[in-house]
Design a protein around this nucleic acid. Structure first.
Lengths: 341, 341
DNA sequence: GTGAAAGCGCTAACAC
DNA sequence: GTGTTAGCGCTTTCAC
């Protein structure tokens, strides 16, 4: 225990008077080992505090027991919950999770993908940035299973777990329209990010069904980060006439938008109504607004399960899992007509 | 490129008509290789898209090029900045960073430590929870260098990078006293966490020097998380007479405290003054308060440099680096006597 | 049911 | 300078 050098399987074998093959079999819970030997081995393993060298094992079996998880922004609590789920399920199945943060930066992302490939991780779960396609294909051709989470990868078919972006956006914007808003500003993620694209689709559908025209000048896109949310909302608030409602397409964009709205001394919902994606984290004064709450934990859980599943059936066709968001309407809302179920 | 199996060093060697040893030397930038060969090898490496198998290398050199970083709460932007710094410096030096989140849970922490040990990581940087000592010693006896960050490990001497907790706390509380406050509530991290302990020391010193008694009922401790900040502050606000000022000992505790204060419909600083550790992230309405801003990025940078340094001189004595925080006094403050420099 | 031995891909000691 | 080769610690045929 106090020794520096870690104990190896051979030493365990010698002490238990068996071969290293037997020790390996016992530890892997393989059948065909006499109970007597099994017990003896386990006792010695316990005594010597033997822990298998995972590096050696990885080299031998040509696959590590590490999962790479690349998320686009660790500051976002949405991704934190998602990561938590991935970790939970991974650990339950003997995998460790290597968390990487791409920061919405395609370069950082491909750097990480390269590292993960070189480390021969067992699989990768990632929320792709705008230009992920190449990096993702590199993984797949290297034989490393990948699962897209929260966002899809354009131009590739692979396992993915996302939410019903278009539908939730449709419901939120329809709600604004029902409240009487006609001039609705919108701030989305870059349309190269599928969440931005799909939420914009829902937005357009809501307008279309209500017979409202799409005013392109009221739609802004950028990176899903506070700074862009602030900047884009600022510019929307300066347009005349000012929009009476705002739809923000992600949590961080919403924070930035709030910042801009408060900066302009506008009140929510008196001066401007707000509907957004993602539930806001606690703040001293949460505004009265509508939002779509995405099942972040379930998203991570499903992705990890999809990956485990892929390990078992490497050749099955790609699956796309779509989870539903829960829509919360602002408290000021009194429905006059029946809402869709 | 389109092939599934990754290319190995032997294949590169064959194509470049050299031995694998030469390829290895070229890639490691070792001296004693003719320029002509070097070029030839690099060209083939490029052509074939060869990337060394880091698992094999790790096994051979008995050390991986992965750094484990265990932080106690990823939701805390303080730790996020710190993690960013560790990553930056690590990458610049050819290391990948394996980010682990202990969530202030000693069990999760020791689970991670075990995984990192089994993965034979090159080193570990960690912000210890309350009961880290054992896990930490296990690392060191396994020959894996460890650096404590933000918090020290009680009962062990090892490399660590922290801030001047006691001093900053002293300044903040002295400031409250100078503003005329006599009844000052305080919320700290569990005193098993060194930041809580040291900040409490500074608090006590400020009171002592001002000739104020320490009212134990005004000092609360808990886990440095929103929930405890809320709960503990609530109980402080219910004591009579109510404290006129509050000192909160960490970012998350401060958020919880704000929540409690707003819940009680109290205004800052009119009803209660606030001094806290850590700069708050943007919020719609930032209260006027004093705070100590810790150099989070520099903390991470210093820790990683300490680790790199340790790789080069494994046997040098343990170092403790203390960085200074910047104190921001609330805007309402008009100094009447000279502040300490 | 158990053991002997090969080999995963790389690096470094040693030869030349 | 460069090549040959042993071996890191494990798993997994293949014998028996």
């Amino acid at each position: 225990m106090a020794t520096g050098a870690p104990v190896r399987i051979q030493e365990v074998a010698r002490r238990a008077k068996v071969s290293s093959a037997t020790v390996s079999r016992v530890l892997a819970n393989k059948p065909h080992v006499r109970d007597e030997l099994k017990e003896r081995v386990l006792r010695v393993v316990q005594d010597m505090g033997y822990e298998p060298n995972r590096v050696a094992r990885s080299l031998r079996v040509q696959r590590s027991s590490v999962i790479g998880l690349i998320i686009s922004d660790v500051r976002n609590t949405f991704f934190q919950q998602l990561a938590r789920a991935v970790e939970d399920i991974a650990y339950q199945n003997g995998y460790a999770v290597f968390l990487c943060n791409s920061d919405e930066d395609p370069e950082k992302e491909s750097l990480y993908v390269n590292v993960l490939r070189a480390e021969r991780v067992a699989g990768v779960i990632m929320s792709p940035t705008r230009e992920t396609t190449k990096a993702c294909k590199a993984l797949l051709t290297a034989g490393i299973p990948a699962v897209a989470i929260d966002r899809s990868v354009l131009g590739t078919t692979l396992d993915s777990v996302i939410t019903d972006n278009s539908e939730a956006a449709y419901k939120l914007v329809s709600h604004l329209i029902k409240q009487g808003h006609k001039r609705i500003g919108a701030v989305f993620s870059d349309l190269g990010i599928t969440t931005g694209r799909e939420r914009f689709e829902g937005h357009k559908r809501a307008l279309r069904e209500a017979g409202l025209p799409l005013d392109e000048t009221l739609v802004k896109t950028g990176l899903p980060m506070d700074e862009d949310g602030y900047r884009l909302t600022k510019s929307l608030l300066e347009s005349t006439p000012r929009p009476t409602a705002l739809f923000t397409g992600s949590k961080l964009l919403t924070y930035g938008a709030l910042h801009a709205i408060y900066d302009s001394s506008l009140m929510i919902p008196a001066d401007i109504a707000l509907a957004s994606f993602d539930k806001l984290d606690w703040m001293p004064s949460l505004p009265s607004m509508s939002y779509a709450e995405q099942p972040a934990y379930d998203l991570g859980k499903a992705a990890m399960q999809l990956l485990l599943n892929r390990f078992e059936t490497p050749s099955r066709a790609a699956q796309k899992i779509v989870l539903e968001s829960t829509i919360h309407f602002d408290s000021s809302y009194k429905p006059t007509v029946a809402d869709p179920p």
